[in-house]
Amino acid sequence: MFAPSDLDVLVPTKDRAGALAVTLAGLATQTVSGFRVVVSDQSHEPVADDPLVAAQLRILDHRDRPAAVHRHLPPRGMAEQRAFLLGRAGRRLALYLDDDVWLEPEAIEVLLAAIGELRCGFVGYALHGLSYRDDVRPAELAPYEEWTDGVRPERVRRESPAWQRHTLHNASNPLHLARKHLGSPGPREWRPYKVAWIGGCVLYDRERLAECGGFDFWRSVPPRHAGEDVVAQLRVMERYGGAGLLPSRAYHLELPTTVTDRRAECYDYVFETAWAP
């Protein structure tokens, strides 16, 4: 089993101090302590100077969740920022948490229990978009399939049927999946299911992520890109397997994305074509 002291929480941020403060507040109220928080800041103004963020950093330190903010400029794309964070992680587990995600208090405790039991490359929570909580999409829920006999490696690509699982995480689909398949789950109940990928809240076995190349492919993609987390997860899944967890204990703040230019998908450059800077 893994302990909180085995965990680095890695948070990339850019020009969203208010959202980051909410994200850090969620980390401060986790049921476990001893993990470390590492923030990569690419904001125009240092995010640690924001009073709300500064207050949360003090609270984290006070509650045995030591936090460090690194100024990391100039921006070279999300893959490079995630690679930078991975280079500053030194513990066995690395939780990539976006700067606009609030976690339920038991979230990290459950993630640690799940990866300790499943022994796969990653586990994660798809993000709730609660503004869609009344928007039920049965067709998008159809690809749901649980891992019932342990998580196994699998190769997922666009042409494979498994790719269709990406609809499971649209809108508030994680909420509707949990209601359909779990009813009223206990506070620490979890169930693993098969994914195409997970965005926003993913806990990796750090050594396995690094073995699969991490995010070092940032040098082979245009600086303005999207989908870097997809590439990393597909690589890890192919060698070690990965799983989503129901119920999700992660909530999207539903702010506008900071990645506005999505014409260059990392998948295309890593798996299908070559690109020369």
Score class of each variant (00 low, 15 high):
residue 254 E to Y: 04
residue 218 W to H: 02
residue 96 Y to S: 03
residue 141 L to D: 08
residue 201 C to W: 00
residue 79 A to I: 08
residue 111 L to G: 11
residue 52 L to C: 00
residue 101 V to S: 00
residue 208 R to W: 06
residue 236 V to S: 13
residue 142 A to M: 04
residue 251 Y to E: 03
residue 71 R to L: 13
residue 275 W to P: 01
residue 30 Q to T: 10
residue 86 L to Y: 02
residue 224 R to T: 02
residue 4 P to K: 13
residue 43 S to A: 00
residue 230 V to I: 12
residue 83 A to Y: 04
residue 26 G to Y: 05
residue 160 S to H: 15
residue 195 V to I: 15
residue 31 T to E: 14
residue 144 Y to I: 15
residue 11 V to W: 05
residue 67 A to I: 10
residue 64 D to G: 02
residue 199 G to F: 01
residue 71 R to D: 04
residue 47 V to G: 00
residue 99 D to S: 08
residue 181 H to W: 14
residue 274 A to I: 06
residue 176 H to P: 08
residue 58 R to N: 02
residue 191 R to F: 05
residue 209 L to H: 01
residue 270 V to K: 06
residue 41 D to A: 04
residue 225 H to N: 01
residue 163 W to F: 15
residue 116 G to L: 11
residue 134 D to V: 02
residue 50 D to P: 03
residue 40 S to G: 15
residue 117 E to T: 15
residue 104 E to R: 14
residue 88 R to D: 04
residue 157 R to I: 03
residue 224 R to M: 02
residue 160 S to R: 10
residue 102 W to G: 09
residue 128 H to P: 01
residue 59 I to M: 10
residue 215 F to Y: 15
residue 177 L to W: 11
residue 140 E to G: 03
residue 149 D to H: 13
residue 16 R to A: 06
residue 254 E to N: 09
residue 34 G to F: 13
residue 214 G to I: 02
residue 175 L to F: 14
residue 237 M to Y: 00
residue 155 R to P: 02
residue 73 L to V: 11
residue 140 E to H: 08
residue 12 P to T: 13
residue 140 E to R: 04
residue 246 L to G: 07
residue 178 A to L: 11
